[in-house]
Every structure is written in structure tokens, then in C-alpha cells.
């Protein structure tokens, strides 16, 4: 929130003006009460939005915690209390362990590549080199792709007779060709590559917009002092955009943690075997394909806690330092 600058209306000024006209005829306490009544009447316009928010966002989230403590075999089956049994099961379940490991791997590999890569790209774009406008237009396309369109694009890329194998065939490396999504080790890397492909360009565009709002004289002063682009990028641009880079990291973190469930579902369904399961995918899979609704909600609670903890951690790590 701190990155948003709030243009406040000159409020003390206008309330003074209102006060000066009232002061003659009404005593102070009543005026304060009527002001409060007026505020309440005004704010009643926010009630529908608040109700919506409560019913559709807060409600489901709160019930998530209670659902995670029941035994529940299907959406219309009866529930029986299970206490913390679901959570105890989590820690011994090898599939959940594998999913946690895959999720961690996905985050540890893709976050630094996306954030550092996007920042360098953004710095390059902010210099407005030749062709930067074509580059921007191209980099914008992944924003327009839905999760399902994204996954479908890569169905064609990774298919046994798809783009990558076609390319390997064309350059004479056909012995490297393989069914990328059906192979236990390459499938997880394929998922990670999809994550990086679609989010690096978006992050770069956002960071470039941030860099363009930096006063250019700062960079010029550094240039006169003899700092090359490499130093200007890491020692000037990075600290200035630090907080915004934190925001981009946070979005990327949440996107990887949650939204990549759709990519996994559509590209591999967690397979081959359980090679590509992630925590977010298991929330869906346990509830809708394996009739373990209560158990899936325990995974969702863990995911939610990890998400909130991650946000707080990233926010702390990227706090502005000057």
C-alpha cells in the first residue's frame, strides 16, 4: 500500500469553511454529533460492497479452517469431526511431501530468475534502445493469455511431435528429443519453464514503468561520476525501486504458489505418477478427484499460511532502506 500515493483532498481547509458558517447558530457538541450522523449516512453506501466482501471472500476463507478439521468423503457426504487428524496425516503423507518439495523447487528456481531477469530487462527497456516498442508489445502478450490458453500453448510446445522436438529434429539433435511432459524429470522442469516464460515479461514491463518514473538526472550524475551501466543498474536503480521490486516479487510468489495449479492440471494432471504434483494442485485433486474434501482443506490451510508468511517475509526483505 505504501507505494500508492494518495492525493488527499485539502480536507482541513474545507471543513474549516463549513465550520465557520455553522458556528454562529449551533453549539459545538451537536454539530459534532450531526457530523457523525452525516458520516454514517454517507458510509451506508459502502454496505453492499462490504456485504459482498464478507459473503464471498471472508466467509469461504473462515470456513476453510473449520472444514480442515473434518473427515469428509465428498461434497454431499456427511462430515465427521477429525480434530487435527488431517494435519497429522499431512506430515507423513509422501505425496504431500513430494508436492511440498516440488512447490519449494518451483519457487526457489523461478523467483530469482524472474525477478532478477525482469529487472535487467526492465533496465534495458528503460534506456529505450532500438526496437524497444516491438519488444514491449511482444512482452505484453502473456498478460492476455488465460491460464488455460497458456497451458494449451505449451501443449503444442512440449508435445512428442511438437515445437521443441521439431526444432531438435531440424538441427540434427533428434536423439535429445523426448516426450517432455511424460518424462518424470523433464515434466517438472517443463512446468517451471512455463511459469518463468509467462511471468518474466509482465514483471519486466511493470518494472520498466517504475524505472521510467525515476528522475533521469540521478542516472546522469552517476554517469558523469564514471559509473557504467552495470553499476548504475545495481547500485542506483535497484535501491531506488527496492520496494516496488518487493511488490513484483510478492505477486510472482503468489502466482507461482496458487495459479500454477491450473498449469499443472492442464499439462500433466500431476503426472507422470506423482512427479509434478504441487500443493495448490493437491487442494484441487484431493477435493474433486479423490473424495478427500476435509484432507484437501488441510492442505489449503497450509498453503494459505505459507502464502501469508511469504508475503510478510518478502515485504520485510524489500523494505525501503533510505
Amino acid at each position: 500500500m505504501t507505494t500508492l500515493t494518495t492525493p488527499h483532498r485539502p480536507s482541513p481547509d474545507s471543513s474549516d469553511r463549513a465550520g465557520s458558517t455553522d458556528r454562529a447558530d449551533s453549539p459545538a457538541p451537536r454539530r459534532r454529533r450531526s457530523a457523525r450522523v452525516r458520516e454514517a449516512a454517507q458510509l451506508s453506501a459502502t454496505i453492499p460492497a462490504l456485504i459482498w466482501f464478507l459473503v464471498f471472500t471472508v466467509g469461504p476463507l473462515v470456513s476453510l479452517f473449520s472444514f480442515s478439521t473434518v473427515n469428509w468423503r465428498g461434497l454431499i457426504a456427511p462430515r465427521t469431526p477429525a480434530g487435527l487428524g488431517n494435519f497429522e496425516r499431512l506430515f507423513t503423507d509422501p505425496v504431500v511431501g513430494l508436492a511440498a518439495w516440488n512447490t519449494l523447487l518451483q519457487l526457489v528456481v523461478s523467483l530469482p530468475i524472474v525477478v532478477l531477469g525482469a529487472f535487467m530487462l526492465a533496465y534495458y527497456l528503460s534506456l529505450k534502445p532500438r526496437g524497444h516498442r516491438i519488444m514491449r508489445a511482444l512482452m505484453f502478450t502473456p498478460v492476455l493469455l488465460s491460464a488455460s490458453a497458456l497451458a494449451m500453448v505449451f501443449v503444442g510446445v512440449f508435445a512428442p511431435k511438437g515445437m521443441i522436438n521439431g526444432f531438435l529434429d531440424a538441427v540434427g539433435l533428434d536423439e535429445l528429443a523426448r516426450p517432455w511432459l511424460a518424462d518424470g524429470t523433464s515434466a517438472l522442469w517443463a512446468i517451471i519453464i512455463v511459469t518463468i516464460w509467462c511471468s518474466m515479461s509482465v514483471s519486466a514491463i511493470m518494472l520498466a514503468a517504475r524505472l521510467n518514473s525515476v528522475d533521469e538526472s540521478i542516472f546522469e550524475a552517476a554517469e558523469i561520476d564514471g559509473a557504467g551501466h552495470w553499476r548504475r543498474m545495481w547500485q542506483i536503480a535497484w535501491p531506488i525501486c527496492r520496494e516496488f521490486i518487493g511488490v513484483v516479487t510478492m505477486l510472482q510468489f503468489l502466482w507461482t504458489l496458487f495459479a500454477s495449479a491450473a498449469v499443472v492440471l492442464l499439462l500433466t494432471r500431476g503426472g507422470p505418477g506423482n512427479a509434478t504434483v504441487t500443493l495448490a494442485f493437491l487442494v484441487y485433486d484431493f477435493a474433486f478427484n479423490q473424495s478427500k474434501v476435509g484432507y484437501s482443506q488441510a492442505v489449503a490451510v497450509v498453503l494459505f499460511v505459507v502464502g501469508v508468511a511469504g508475503i510478510l517475509l518478502i515485504r520485510r526483505a524489500f523494505r525501503q532502506k533510505y
Binding site: T57, P60, L254, F258, A259, A287, V293, Q297, F304
Partner: peptide, 18 residues
């Protein structure tokens, strides 16, 4: 509200719709 990742509440939302 920004901080609430909606995907976590997938199943409760389905129940709400039911």
C-alpha cells in the same frame, strides 16, 4: 482484501454456491 489469495478458498466457495 488484497492479501487474501482466493484460490485457497476454492472448496468453501463451491459449498457456498451449493
Amino acid at each position: 482484501g488484497f492479501l487474501i489469495p482466493g484460490f485457497a478458498a476454492l472448496v468453501p466457495t463451491v459449498l457456498l454456491s451449493i
